[in-house]
Design a protein around this nucleic acid. Structure first.
Lengths: 153, 153
DNA sequence: TAAGAAAAAGCAACATAGTTGCAAAAGAAT
DNA sequence: ATTCTTTTGCAACTATGTTGCTTTTTCTTA
């Protein structure tokens, strides 16, 4: 079964905002809903399009920044110079992100997914280097885009 | 032994350009020298500054793109939405990059280094996902910034 | 080494992404 | 409902990157 894109209830979204001491506004609700509906990651541009020209660009920028600050979403580094955002898991809190999962960018559909179950392996650094955070971005073909080849399992 | 920042000879730079079937121009020589002198990675802005306002912005963009196309430099993904470039090792060729090393971003000096000796470990993806390339970016404190003799500010 | 062909640089204009200050509007609290 | 606070939208601005076209430089070869 693939994840159905069910619309999150208004209450669900409101609760999430309240839990983070954020006032409930149209733009925050709409943007948060977009994240909850979408399995992948969203860039500022995606949101601008999906929100249907309802909100000012600046509002979207500020809302995203607010969500990042609160630990609701996190940024994903990409090679193509566009910041993408995805929902954080519950362990994240204000000013304290724990993104210990890898990010997968599909070169076919151009979506970015958080693979929460894939653990980042230990990286042994040379002497003198201290790691604070490790980001792993894998490029390739995602499950959905995998060619419908009848021979492959 | 650490890499001394010796100025590469003109011939050395010219050879490198010729080997890649690139005509030898002032901007290409200058930019290539900057990469050879610098152990870390450079962003477009860094080059613009270091080149001393000698070249047009567009020329720098196009030169970097040319170098990437030829496999002389490669791009490094960063979280802060600025593309950085670093020299490729010899295995890279036109249209065929092999960046199997990790990238280290120092949060103190803000430099990016290619740690060529650190091998990217195997990442086991969920069923259905196919990896074409894996990018690992480690944030932390680099050797120079940790060193007891703080020479740079 | 001079002349023509090809490539690259420079310029201008445009496009996209992101930021800041401020007034108006919406949300929260009483 | 009124006040206070927060957020929004607007305008203007900066930074970053791209494209078309003309001039200059480099390469070729005679």
């Amino acid at each position: 079964m693939s994840k159905p894109a069910l619309t999150p209830s208004n209450q669900q979204v409101d609760m999430l905002l309240k839990r983070n001491s954020l006032s409930i506004t149209d733009s925050r609700k709409k943007i948060l809903q977009l994240f909850l509906e979408d399995a992948g990651a969203l860039a500022h541009g995606d949101i601008e399009k999906k929100a249907g020209e309802k909100f000012d660009r600046v509002t979207i920028y500020r809302t995203l920044q607010t969500f990042v600050d609160k630990g609701i979403i996190h940024t994903i580094p990409t090679a193509d110079n566009s910041i993408r955002y995805a929902l954080c898991k519950d362990e994240c809190s204000e000013g304290h992100h724990h993104d210990h999962h890898i990010h997968f960018v599909c070169t076919s559909c151009n979506n970015t997914y958080c693979l929460d179950d894939v653990v980042i392996p230990d990286i042994k650094l040379p002497k003198g280097y201290t790691a604070a955070q490790v980001e792993v971005v894998v490029e390739g073909i995602c499950r959905k885009c995998k060619a419908p080849n009848p021979l492959s399992p």
